[in-house]
Design a protein around this nucleic acid. Sequence first.
DNA 1: TTCTTTTTTTAGGTTTACCTAAAAATATTT
DNA 2: AAATATTTTTAGGTAAACCTAAAAAAAGAA
Lengths: 220, 220
Amino acid sequence: MLNYSTSEENYIKAIFHLQQEDGTVTTNELANELKTKPASVTDMMKKLKVKKLLHYQPYQGFRLSSEGNKVALTIIRRHRLWEYFLAEKLKFSWDEVHAVAEHLEHVSSKKLIDKLDEFLGFPRTDPHGDPIPDMNGKIETSKQIPLTELAANKPAVVCHVSDQSTEILDLLRHKNISIGTKLEVKKKFDFDDSMEVRIGRHPAFTISKQLAENIFVQIT
Amino acid sequence: MLNYSTSEENYIKAIFHLQQEDGTVTTNELANELKTKPASVTDMMKKLKVKKLLHYQPYQGFRLSSEGNKVALTIIRRHRLWEYFLAEKLKFSWDEVHAVAEHLEHVSSKKLIDKLDEFLGFPRTDPHGDPIPDMNGKIETSKQIPLTELAANKPAVVCHVSDQSTEILDLLRHKNISIGTKLEVKKKFDFDDSMEVRIGRHPAFTISKQLAENIFVQIT
DNA sequence: TTCTTTTTTTAGGTTTACCTAAAAATATTT
DNA sequence: AAATATTTTTAGGTAAACCTAAAAAAAGAA
């Protein structure tokens, strides 16, 4: 696998994430995600097309080629392993790891990453509950659903929080929810889409629609 | 302290190292060290002068300002802590750490480096025996002398090897010399400046002038 | 000291990754 | 379907960090 610039890597990673939801990604979506201008996106798309990392016809949006996907997965592997390292070994808090990992992920030595993986004991998920691709780019695809879609009285475990702001962390800490928390939805209110949630034998409490949308769980 | 580009950091680091020997650094020396062209060096010197990181009058060579020195020491701190991490935790061999640390050193989070330092147990030297600056940029200045200058029968400990090629590593391994090895010079031969060296109670063996020049020791 | 060589700087060009503004293509409304 | 709005691309420009070639300054030799 060739080496790519930090900028190219950031584009590839962003496309990978956006196409999980959309299938195909548009110029504006990508410009917005990367806080850059549509014209810059078009420039880069031409370059990545020449490098055969993505499929792109002008005005038609784009998606990664299989080579592009492979590249994306190695970047995500680096990112998540560094996040795990920062949280687990250096005791960074949950909401601090992302920003630092954004920089570390661009150091591209394969040997470094594989040895780091080994040193960390081959962790399967990062501190946000996202799965870490293995050496071959294989990634666990567990069916994560937002809390809004969890049926009532189904026991589930929190595996991911999509928003990573300090504000949401604060709220989650207050409600005693973190990755690995086992919970059940007891009741949903159609009026404002809020819900009553219960952790173990504790008394149930209320969660807003906005919060529930950002909490992802796996049914247990 | 401000943030500097990877390129700026590499220039600052190179000047720092060169001025240890020379006091003042010339355009050609620096171009040679960084494998770039003299014209590029002049460009960068102008920029670093504006940023007040160095003293520079056209045609007069340059040296770092006190601010420049501070910056250099934080980069060296990052580099050597990462080298220590790679060797100690990830089990990289001695001659592999440098190349990877060259990339990691440009990740500029102060918190990352201070936490890494703590995680590693505040090591005082990197795997090559070079001292690691502390959080305030203080660096141990132990009088390291090349083996060529060590008087006969003075016990000393190997603290540094200046050349870091695979070839020298190979030779050192064969002779059983590494950082921390305690040795004594038994005899010097003026004809070719070779010397007889003895490690502990083992039989003495010969070291060439070229090798001795690259081995640095501290008297114990 | 003057001439020659070496070193350093200037002038002008390239590439990467951005940008703005305008043109072209596509989508949406009426 | 035509008009309008939005999205995307093109055209042309900027800054960083490099380059080559030529000019200027400094150093060394005759």
